[in-house]
């Protein structure tokens, strides 16, 4: 099991075993799910109330489907832990966070200081993702 290296939540970490999206609907006691790049995150929408951990898997960081999966679940109101797992690179951490991720479990531990710099790199952002609580630059301009 990969370690969570960065976590931006106050609550207790959930470490229930994550099941596949396919299995999740049938296993009514499951509370953690793992989304692979090809899965449709919207399949989980009927079950949001019993979810407390979503792992979104990045077998290769250059496959960006997980960004949409995370944001879709957040848009639908999912409030639990959203954990990015797999091939994570420092330079994308900030963007993952903007799509609703709040926990990061890279395959290989990242340089702690470089990663912290990356998380904090962008003081302002051009878009509202509506899931990271950050106002877009346009909102500040017309605040």
């Amino acid at each position: 099991m990969v370690e969570v290296q960065f976590r931006f939540r106050e609550d207790e970490a959930v470490n229930d075993p994550a099941v596949t999206v396919d299995a999740f609907a049938a296993q009514t006691n499951a509370t953690a799910v793992r989304i692979e790049p090809g899965d449709d995150a919207r399949d989980l929408l009927p079950h949001l109330d019993r979810l407390s951990l979503v792992e979104v898997s990045f077998p290769a960081w250059t496959d960006g489907r997980g960004y949409s999966s995370a944001r879709i679940l957040r848009e639908a109101g999912y409030k639990g832990e959203m954990r990015a797992v797999g091939d994570l690179v420092i330079d994308m951490l900030h963007h993952l966070k903007r799509c609703g991720f709040d926990a990061f479990a890279p395959d290989k531990a990242l340089n702690d200081q470089d990663a912290r710099t990356a998380f904090d790199r962008w003081e302002n952002v051009y878009q509202a993702t509506a899931v990271d609580g950050r106002p877009a630059i346009w909102a500040k301009r017309h605040g």
Binding site: G64, R71, H95
Partner: peptide, 13 residues
Amino acid sequence: RQWSSFHPEFLVL
């Protein structure tokens, strides 16, 4: 241009 610059969801299309 501004919307697409560093759009977090669309950087690894």
